[in-house]
Amino acid sequence: MQQNLRLCIAQMTSTNRHAGNIAFVEHAVQHAVAQGCDLLALPEAAGMMNKDRDDARTQITVEAEDPFISACKRLAAEHGIWIQTGSTPVASGDGRFLNHANLINAQGISVAQYDKIHLFDVFLEGRPATGESSRYAPGAEGVVVDTPWGSWGMSICYDLRFPHLFRDYALRDATIMFIPSAFTVPTGDAHWETLLRARAIENGAYVVAAAQVGNHDDGRITWGHSLVIDPWGKVLTDLGGTEAGLAVVDLDMEMVRRSRDQIPNLRNARDYTVRHITT
């Protein structure tokens, strides 16, 4: 396993058209390569953020024909860099979309695909219900993929609130958990960093959480604060909550083993039952 990974994490204000977002990724790849990065990590909805369902349907297609995914493959191959695409909507086959992520290697090959499992159907006080499941179909499987830097686990945004997914990944020796997101401002302010640091600490893994930020074409406002967190829970970078940007972070993959050796909770877990007492 290669010990050192140089990562470029991207924070975006995605548009409601593929073209503008592809242009941003082209710039991000050029920056990452100039900085000697091995990997570019993008946020949820990096390919397109568009809550106008009718307009979105005129653009969204199956993965094999998606212009954003195709552009990421081309850029990865041309520049010899891995790209974690964050996510982009693709057609599901049942009239809804899939919130879909790819991990693309330095040859431009998609070596792993993941569809968001847990959909954001929540009811925040003073705000309309989100109802993500009315537009998106859920994924059905978690994904861990072997890379030269160890195994990596894939997730998207609301998956963050389901810690058993990341525990399953850690038990399969995942060294990095990708959590690309487009958090709302109220939930981001209240929960974002706390939950991300918890996932890193309890699993002894790096968390890479590229995020959307600011005011989007479709009227949404997102929290930002893209974070990279080490296995001990230390925030290595925070891109803030006001504008798009890029940051380069060096990850020592050996720190995963050291953290898990010091606090071996993955080995210490025991089977148990719960006794419910009524009075």
Rank of each mutant, 00 (worst) to 15 (best):
F166R: 02
I179A: 11
Y136R: 11
R172F: 02
G153E: 03
P180T: 14
G150Q: 11
F162D: 09
R135G: 12
F178R: 08
E125W: 01
V144Y: 00
G150S: 08
T130E: 11
F183G: 07
D146K: 14
A174W: 01
T130G: 06
S181A: 15
A170V: 04
S155P: 00
G126P: 02
S155A: 15
I179M: 13
T147V: 07
V145D: 04
R161D: 07
Y169K: 05
A140N: 14
L171P: 03
L171Y: 02
D168P: 00
F183H: 13
G139C: 12
M154D: 03
R172N: 09
D173S: 14
L171Q: 10
C157G: 04
R167S: 06
M177N: 15
P180M: 15
W152P: 01
G150P: 06
A129R: 10
L160G: 05
Y136N: 14
F166W: 04
G131F: 07
D168E: 11
A174E: 03
D159Q: 08
M154E: 00
Y158W: 11
R172Q: 14
S155D: 00
S133L: 07
F178K: 09
L165W: 04
V144D: 02
R135W: 05
D146A: 15
D159W: 00
I156Q: 06
D146T: 14
L160Y: 01
V144L: 02
A137L: 13
S134W: 05
I156L: 09
P138D: 08
P180D: 10
G131I: 09
P148F: 04
A140E: 10
E132V: 07
A174N: 04
A137F: 03
M177S: 13
G126R: 07
A174L: 02
V145Q: 12
F166Y: 11
T175H: 15
F178P: 02
D168N: 14
A140W: 03
T175E: 07
W149L: 10
A182H: 12
V143M: 10
W149Y: 12
R167N: 04
A129G: 05
F162K: 13
M154N: 01
T175K: 15
P138C: 13
M154I: 06
S181H: 07
T147D: 06
I179C: 11
F178N: 08
F166K: 05
Y136M: 13
I156M: 06
P128A: 05
M177T: 11
A140M: 12
I179R: 07
G131Q: 11
E141P: 02
D168K: 07
R172I: 00
G153K: 02
Y136I: 09
M177E: 06
S151K: 15
L160T: 13
M154K: 03
A137T: 15
L171V: 04
D159P: 04
C157E: 01
R127G: 03
Y169H: 11
Y169P: 00
E132C: 10
P163H: 03
R172P: 02
L160V: 12
F178T: 09
M154Y: 00
F178D: 01
G153T: 03
E132K: 07
F162T: 14
G126L: 08
S134A: 14
T147F: 02
E141R: 15
I179H: 01
R127K: 13
W152F: 15
T184D: 12
P180V: 14
